[in-house]
């Protein structure tokens, strides 16, 4: 009879999905520990070099980075706005489906006479963070063109915006 009892307990303990449940519980515990969700912004910069930037398209991904003893940071995009230069001051094109997700394709063009050259901030992405970990972002430039529509080699980069920077820019 003891043998039967031990067998039953071992089968129930080793049932499938036990690992998944444990991971979910850990994530929930982390979130509960982290308390309220946090917000931050990510600036997107495009460096067109000597050329005038007429159009750009980038893909931004928030990486859910799991850190030991801290937990996973879950990135959710909550809003987008334009950049510094008037040519790209309006909100860029993006898919509204990207909101509440961690991935967005951002694009804009300008037919204005005055276009930026060199490194310029073209957009700001607002994100909500869940969990206690620090997020990471991955940016890939997909297309860029000069004022005549000719494709150019451009570099794209991100910068996390602190609360103070964000308030200073908004004023």
């Amino acid at each position: 009879m003891k043998f039967l009892l031990i067998l039953l307990v071992s089968i129930l303990a080793a049932g499938p999905g036990a690992g998944d449940t444990q991971e979910r519980d850990e994530a929930r515990a982390t979130f509960a520990f982290a308390g309220e969700p946090r917000f931050e912004a990510v600036d997107i910069f495009v460096d067109a070099g000597d050329a005038s930037l007429g159009a750009y398209q980038v893909e931004l991904k928030g990486i859910e980075r799991k850190e030991a003893r801290v937990g996973t940071a879950f990135v959710k995009i909550v809003g987008l706005e334009g950049g510094d230069h008037p040519a790209f001051g309006d909100a860029p094109y993006y898919d509204p489906e990207a909101l509440q997700g961690g991935r967005v394709i951002v694009a804009a063009f300008s037919t204005a006479a005055d276009l930026p050259a060199g490194r310029t901030r073209v957009a700001r992405v607002h994100v909500m963070l869940e969990g206690a970990g620090e997020p990471a972002y991955e940016l890939k430039i997909e297309a860029a063109a000069d004022r005549g529509g000719k494709p150019i080699r451009a570099q794209a980069s991100t910068e996390r915006v602190t609360k103070e920077q964000s308030e200073g820019t908004d004023q």
Binding site: G54, A55, Y56, Q57, Y93, A107, A108, F109, T111, E142, A143, A145, G149, P151
Partner: peptide, 14 residues
């Protein structure tokens, strides 16, 4: 399909 397609048409329209 990327932003360069839209840019091409926008420049033509303007």
């Amino acid at each position: 399909v990327n932003i360069l397609d839209a840019f091409l048409v926008a420049r033509a329209v303007e």
